[in-house]
């Protein structure tokens, strides 16, 4: 690490880091993504699309991977398979998904209450959504899209249909390097212990959304 990188790191940390003390009141599920472990293989994207019926051939996804190479961001999608073909020598991968914000803009702006919280997860009532796309506009993470077949907005639900039955979300299950960890955010749980012992950050903390997706080893502010 040269002096320039070190200064960038120091300057970015106060912006991105969040202390666990501030999260103690937030019950429910949470996900941890270790950026250092992600190899950009894209298995999580494929598994998510298959599990949740998102067309594989279209560049829309509930979870996606961004690669940051030499300061340039590339959003990878299923058309770019195999994902690994992008040389990652001087870069890193950032898997992204809905951040299940405690203070979710999409929940606040939805005119028909089609978005709501259950166990800390932001869910979409597809029978009520009118497809006004205000949630897409409001989401600072770009995590929502219009499902081309269902004609309603769609996004990650942490595979709520699976976790209700005690299963892991599809992306967590297939990750070959264990870059994604998922569980209830309560004292003693794996997620809680990791967050207690390691430095972590969230995306766009300035938005004040209180995300429930936490990143480990994300030493720079990503878009």
């Amino acid at each position: 690490m040269n002096r320039r990188d070190f200064l960038k790191l120091i300057l970015s940390l106060p912006l991105a880091s969040v202390s666990i003390a501030s999260l103690k009141s937030s019950k429910g599920y949470a996900m941890i993504i270790d950026v250092e472990k992600c190899i950009g293989c894209g298995k999580c994207v494929i598994a998510c699309k298959i599990e949740n019926g998102v067309p594989l051939e279209l560049p829309i996804s509930r979870t996606w991977i961004e690669s940051y190479l030499d300061g340039k961001k590339i959003v990878m999608n299923t058309k770019d398979n195999p994902f690994i073909k992008i040389k990652a020598k001087n870069g890193f991968f950032v898997p992204k998904l809905c951040n299940h914000c405690s203070n979710a803009p999409c929940v606040n702006v939805c005119p028909v209450s089609a978005r709501f919280h259950v166990d800390g997860i932001v869910l979409v009532d597809k029978d009520v959504c009118i497809g006004c796309k205000y949630c897409i506009i409001a989401c600072p993470y770009g995590a929502t899209f219009v499902h081309p077949e269902e004609k309603v907005t769609d996004k990650c639900t942490f595979c709520y249909h699976r976790i209700r039955r005690g299963l892991k979300p599809a992306c967590v299950l297939v990750c070959p390097t264990g870059a994604r960890k998922f569980g209830e955010f309560k004292e003693g749980s794996e997620v809680y212990e990791i967050l207690k012992s390691k430095r972590f950050s969230v995306l766009k903390p300035e938005a004040g959304t209180n995300p429930r997706v936490f990143y480990l080893n994300l030493d720079t502010v990503v878009e």
């Binding site: 560049p59 829309i60 996804s61 796309k133 897409i136 770009g142 899209f145 219009v146 081309p148």
Partner: peptide, 8 residues
């Protein structure tokens, strides 16, 4: 209206 790839 394929919002993820354009303007919602």
């Amino acid at each position: 209206y394929e919002s993820a790839v354009g303007n919602p």
